[in-house]
Design a protein around this nucleic acid. Structure first.
Lengths: 214, 214
DNA sequence: TGTACATCAGTGAACGCGCGTTCACTGATGTAC
DNA sequence: TGTACATCAGTGAACGCGCGTTCACTGATGTAC
C-alpha cells in the first residue's frame, strides 16, 4: 500500500492561479501547436487544447469564434513568422544574388524543420479559403517573397540565366525547397541519411538557376 | 403544399439490394477516397463511409480491424498504384536517359494531380509507422523507383554529370517533383497560372541533372 | 484618494450529437454426402 | 441431383464516450466622479 504524500503541498497547487490568464490567446495557439505535433492538424480536439492550457472548455470562445477559427489563427500567425524568416534571410546577406538565393532556400528549409507543427498547419490543414480569405492572403504574402526575390536576383545575373522567365524559375526553386522540406518532415529521407547532405543539395538547387558557372 | 410522388417507385428502391455486397472492401476504400477529397485524410468518419457505401456501420469490421486500418489500406493500395505508374513511365520510354527521367517526373506529377485524394492519404495521413510497418515498406518500394532510375540514368550520361553522387541527384529530382505536386494540389500555384508551364518546368528540372548541354 | 459601476475574461455545468465499436442475429453461399 | 449444414458477410440496435458549443454566473480590472 503506497504511502500518501502528506508533508507539503506542491507549490503549483498552493500558488493560487489567477482568475485571468494574461495571454490566453497565445497560450491556446501554443497548446494547439503542441497537440498538432502528435495528432496532425485535424486530429486535435478543442477540449484537449483547453486541458493543456489549464482553462475551462468555454474559455476559448472569448478569443475565437470556434475551433476552426483557432486553427486558422495558428496558420495565419505561422505564415507571418515564415514571412519574417524569409525576409530576414533575403535582407541579411546582401551578398551576391547566388548567396541571397542560397540564404532564402536555407531559410525555407530551416523554418520547416524547426517549426514542423506550424509547417503542417500551414500546408496541410485544409482550411476553407472561402471562410478565411485573410489566411490565404497572408500565405501569399509570404510566398511572394520567394517569387520577388528570384525575380530581383535574376536581373542581377549574367544574361544566360535569362532564357527562362522569372516566374518559372521562382516556381522551380520554390517547389524544390517545398518538396525537400515536406519529405524531410515526413521522414522519407531519414533512411538514406540525406540530412548531412542538405548544404550540398541547397548549393545544387541554387547554382543551377544561373546557367553553368563552375 | 407539395404533392407527393405516387406514380411509381423508383427502380433503386424496387430492385432489392442483395444481402452480400460483392466487393465491399474495395467499395469502402473508394468511399473513403471520396470523403477524403472533401474532409482531408483525418476528417472523415467511418459512419460516413458506411452511409456512402450503403452498408451498416458494423459491416467494415468484416474487412478491417478498425478505422485506422481502413485508412492504412487506402494508403497502401495508393502506394502500389503509384509504384505501378512510376514503373510504367520508366519502362515505356526506352529512349535516352533524359527522356526516361522526364517521363518519370511527368508520371510523378500526373499521378499526384489525377489522384489527389490518394496523394493526400499517402503523404499527409500521419499513420503510425509502428503500427503499419508494411505501409512504410510499400511507400519505400515506390519511392525507390525514383532513386534507382536516377542512378541507372546517371551511369548512361556523360561524365560531367557525375560530379554529384546519384543519391543527392535523386533526392533533388524527387523533392522537386514532390514539391511541385504538393503546391499544385494545395492550390498555391493557381493564381500565377503555372499549370500551362508544367512541361517547361519538367524539362527545366530534368535537363539540369546532366550538367550543361544546351 | 475612495467608491460605484461597467466591462469583460474567466468558470463549470449542461446539452445534444455523432462517433467507433460490439453484439446477437440473419440470410446467402458453397460443399459433403 | 437433392438435402443438411458449416461458413461467413452482412444487419440493426445498442453502448459509452468525448466532443463542440452554450449558458448563466463570477470575479478581476479599469474608469468616472
Amino acid at each position: 500500500m503506497p504511502e500518501k504524500e502528506e508533508e507539503s503541498i506542491p507549490s503549483e497547487l498552493t500558488a493560487k492561479k489567477p482568475y485571468h490568464h494574461g495571454d490566453l490567446r497565445q497560450a491556446l495557439i501554443k497548446a494547439t501547436l503542441e497537440l498538432v505535433d502528435s495528432t496532425g492538424p485535424r486530429g486535435f480536439s478543442l477540449a484537449q487544447v483547453c486541458r493543456q492550457a489549464g482553462v475551462s472548455t468555454a474559455a476559448p470562445y472569448r478569443h475565437f469564434e470556434d475551433k476552426e477559427s483557432l486553427l486558422a489563427a495558428v496558420s495565419e500567425s505561422s505564415f507571418a513568422l515564415f514571412r519574417q524568416a524569409l525576409l530576414q534571410a533575403r535582407d541579411a546577406g546582401a551578398g551576391s544574388p547566388i548567396q541571397t538565393l542560397r540564404a532564402l532556400a536555407g531559410a525555407y528549409l530551416d523554418f520547416a524543420c524547426n517549426n514542423q507543427s506550424r509547417f503542417r498547419v500551414m500546408f496541410s490543414s485544409g482550411l476553407p479559403k472561402s471562410r478565411f480569405p485573410d489566411l490565404y492572403k497572408s500565405a501569399r504574402s509570404a510566398l511572394d517573397i520567394v517569387l520577388e526575390t528570384v525575380s530581383e536576383c535574376q536581373t542581377l545575373l549574367p544574361p544566360e540565366s535569362k532564357r527562362l522567365d522569372a516566374y518559372t524559375l521562382a516556381v522551380s526553386l520554390w517547389s524544390q525547397c517545398h518538396g525537400l522540406a515536406s519529405l524531410l518532415i515526413d521522414g522519407y529521407l531519414k533512411e538514406i541519411s540525406v540530412e548531412e547532405r542538405i548544404p550540398e543539395l541547397l548549393d545544387l538547387l541554387v547554382d543551377r538557376y544561373v546557367g553553368c558557372e563552375e
